[in-house]
Amino acid sequence: MFHWLEKHPFFFAVGVFVVIAFAGLIEILPNFAQASRPVIGTAPYSTLELAGRHVYIKNSCNACHSQLVRPFKSETDRYGHYSLSGEYAYDRPFLWGSKRTGPDLMRVGNYRTTDWHENHMKNPASVVPGSIMPAYKWLFTNSADVDTVYAEQLTVAKHFAVPYNQEVPMKDGSVKNVKMANSVAEARSLALEEAKVVAADMKDQDVKDAVARGEIPEIVALIAYMNSLK
């Protein structure tokens, strides 16, 4: 049979394809039905949080930081509850990472503050002596791209039924309604409202001034995202 295949490239290629496609069919497809259901307490990202997620991706933070707490005592001691599949229901793309040059950030919002992040991003060694993380000063001057974030929100709400403008259940029995704007202008002002809350806890005068002018520096969005990781 193999000799015959080697003289018939078409059937050879078909044979190879069947053999390599087989594993994907069995391993990947069955999981699709169940794994993207959110757990209680998981809400879609707000406009500013999602903008921060874009900043996180733009700077490849995931090259050094994971967002996956494994079910070991040492990890739950260090980072909090181990990760549940449903917590990632609105993560497109997933940001588990593959290397922990720095610590996991899955629940960083539980134990770090706006103030801490601000200092850390300017000069990591000032809050973590010995840190080898580079400073990210340009985040304080670059502006976040809210328009693209809004386009993404519209896309996921339409194609993947992400529940914006709907009530989602929280762990304490309350409900949360994450707003998505009706227009670009409204999206910008929604993000700015959120940004003002974050900037109020920050010290950098240039950032405060920028937010007062109606701009949203990347650092503000990133901190909003960090604070949402719980």
């Binding site: 699709f32 993207s36 599949s85 990632y88 993560d91 793309p93 693209t148 993947f160």
Partner: peptide, 14 residues
Amino acid sequence: HSVSMYAGTNDALV
């Protein structure tokens, strides 16, 4: 810009 067709665990799997 684009957004992944898969979310969370499924995205990781693929």
